[in-house]
């Protein structure tokens, strides 16, 4: 399988750097897989799972909202937060989820609704990534 160079950058650190075979991201329209020789493109992503396949190994990570830029020479993913399952704090995610649900019930303004929905989406995605990992271990 063809390989391409992937870099995942967050404001705090470079999360991933190296040759990969494919990545699967969660875009606004749904899941999307990028392989080598992809057409140059920019994808907007929503909080969700990110699958990186390198050397035949497929790993899942959590990726918050951001965007992925595919260029002929390399692919760069930008997001405010990208985390491996082992770095996800379940309790924090659970708390964030409950907080967001509570806020959503009150629903004061449209802008607040959007913010809370996004927060809920992030919490769900984190919990999902974490639970996938646990299933894999058993």
């Amino acid at each position: 399988m063809g390989k391409f160079y992937l870099e995942i950058i967050t404001p705090e650190k470079t999360f991933y750097k190296g040759e990969v075979e494919s990545i699967q991201i969660t875009t606004l329209d749904g899941t999307c897989m990028i392989m080598a020789e992809h057409q140059p493109m920019v994808f907007a992503t929503v909080p969700g799972s990110l699958y990186i396949t390198a050397d035949g190994q497929r790993r899942e990570a959590f990726m918050s909202e951001g965007f992925v830029e595919v260029r002929p020479d390399e692919t760069i993913a930008f997001s405010e937060a990208v985390e491996w399952p082992e770095d996800i704090n379940v309790r924090r995610a659970q708390e964030a989820k409950e907080r967001a649900e509570e806020q959503l019930r009150r629903n004061r303004s449209a802008a607040e609704y959007r913010l809370n929905r996004l927060a809920l989406q992030r919490a769900f995605a984190r919990l999902q990534v974490k639970s996938h990992k646990n299933i894999g271990n058993f």
């Binding site: 329209d29 140059p40 493109m41 920019v42 994808f43 907007a44 260029r71 020479d73």
Partner: peptide, 21 residues
Amino acid sequence: KNTYGGQIDYDPSPKEVLNVL
């Protein structure tokens, strides 16, 4: 400096990407 000077497509649309950006 972007190494790639060609046209880049935006998915799903420039407007949606803009909303994220």
